[in-house]
């Protein structure tokens, strides 16, 4: 498994990527009549499409939320899902 992932990453066409933590760790931001609505869980409306992403270095979820809330798509009826990355770390064990 790991070797296969490593091979993908070493393929020169691969520009980057990250392993997302499971959907249960997601937080979604929407706009509700001008107020920011923060909810637990992923953005699940399948009629919508993923429009873009940011990779963000934040010290905690509040900092990530602050950044995400500035994304104009929220004001246009969109939603922003925040998902932590898996920071693997061989030596950095739990």
């Amino acid at each position: 498994m790991n070797a296969a992932y490593l091979a993908l990453r070493d393929d020169p066409r691969c520009l980057g990527g990250a392993h997302l933590q499971p959907a249960e760790t997601a937080t979604t931001i929407r706009d509700n009549l001008g107020e920011t609505l923060i909810t637990d869980g992923p953005f699940a409306d399948t009629k919508e499409v993923l429009g873009g992403y940011y990779v963000l270095d934040a010290s905690d979820l509040d900092e990530a939320l602050e950044f995400a809330q500035r994304i104009p798509a929220i004001r246009l009826g969109g939603a922003v899902e925040i998902r932590p990355l898996v920071v693997i770390p061989a030596e950095d064990a739990f």
């Binding site: 933590q21 249960e24 760790t25 997601a26 937080t27 637990d40 934040a58 010290s59 905690d60 979820l61 509040d62 990530a64 925040i82 932590p84």
Partner: peptide
Amino acid sequence: AKIKAAGIPFAVP
């Protein structure tokens, strides 16, 4: 688990 993974801060906002 979510608090830990998502980095929900342990602080007074």
